[in-house]
């Protein structure tokens, strides 16, 4: 049976992980390579690296990191942040990433999705989207949820699927950082509307939140950062918990 995936997300700045990550057993918790390896050993199904440097001078630092991660990591990983062209993608994939995530650049230029899907295959194109629920409904936001676009989320996701995105990573700005659970109502609607895998993001606080997003939100995977980094939730324990609830996981 296809397992629901648990995906820790690591923010990267200048080739180092940011946020005080609480991995006492690591010599250097700021080293993405060591951290990636530790997460794979703990049972993570995939990893997402989000580069928040995203300036062109620092690109080489990121590519070096991607290469080093690829050498040690035996599970798939996605790299996002500041990717805006076919050339950026070619470099990141060549360094060893399995997938890339695009967000703002795809909103500004939807044709980029088509171009990447045709050149590299849909399987490596993750369309990340930040959205907020307002009176108008779910609206797409840019720059980490600061800039409204006027584009409605569901329309955008349908278009992204049609253009060849292979997977959707949806972050609810209403839920992100609250630790009150994922945006399950919206997730369930999206999951039924599109026929590509859906990653839930934003709102993970406890183990039940993950169970809820898989059952009620019909998500195929769930992404979180701080609950894993600060060891509020241990991945192995989380998977045991999900298994007891008859949710298929890889143990």
């Amino acid at each position: 049976m296809l397992a629901k995936r648990i995906i820790p997300c690591l923010d990267i700045k200048d080739g180092r992980t940011v946020k005080g990550i609480n991995f006492v057993d690591l010599k250097d918790a700021g080293d993405p390579v060591e951290l990636a390896k530790a997460y794979a050993e703990k049972g993570a199904d995939e990893l997402v690296f989000l580069d928040i440097t995203a300036t062109h001078e620092k690109r080489k630092t990121l590519l070096d990191m991607v290469g080093k991660v690829a050498q040690v990591l035996n599970i798939p990983f996605t790299v996002g942040g500041g990717i805006s062209s076919s050339e950026d993608v070619a470099q990141v994939l060549k360094a060893g990433a399995d997938k890339i995530a695009i967000n703002s650049s795809a909103v500004r230029n939807p044709e980029l999705i088509t171009e990447l899907a045709n050149r590299f295959g849909s399987q490596c194109v993750v369309l990340a989207v930040d959205a907020r629920e307002t009176e108008k409904g779910w609206e797409v936001y840019l720059n980490g949820g600061r800039i409204p676009t006027g584009i409605m989320l569901f329309d955008w996701l349908k278009e992204a699927e049609k253009r060849g995105a292979g997977e959707i990573l949806f972050t609810s700005m209403n839920h992100d950082g609250t630790k009150n659970g994922f945006a399950n109502e919206a997730l369930a609607e999206i999951s039924q509307m599109i026929n590509i895998p859906l990653i839930a993001s934003g709102g993970a606080g406890n183990m039940q939140d993950f169970a809820d997003t898989f059952v009620n939100g019909k998500a195929d995977a769930a992404l979180a950062a701080s609950v894993f980094h600060y060891k509020e939730i241990e991945i192995h324990e989380l998977k045991q918990f999900l298994k007891e609830k008859n949710i298929p996981v890889r143990l």
Binding site: M1, L2, A3, R5, D45, S122, Q123, G166, E167, N195, I196, P197, D220, A221, R250
Partner: peptide, 13 residues
Amino acid sequence: PAEDKVPHMGWNQ
């Protein structure tokens, strides 16, 4: 066939 999500992506047995 599009009876479920395609691609088949992730860990399976």
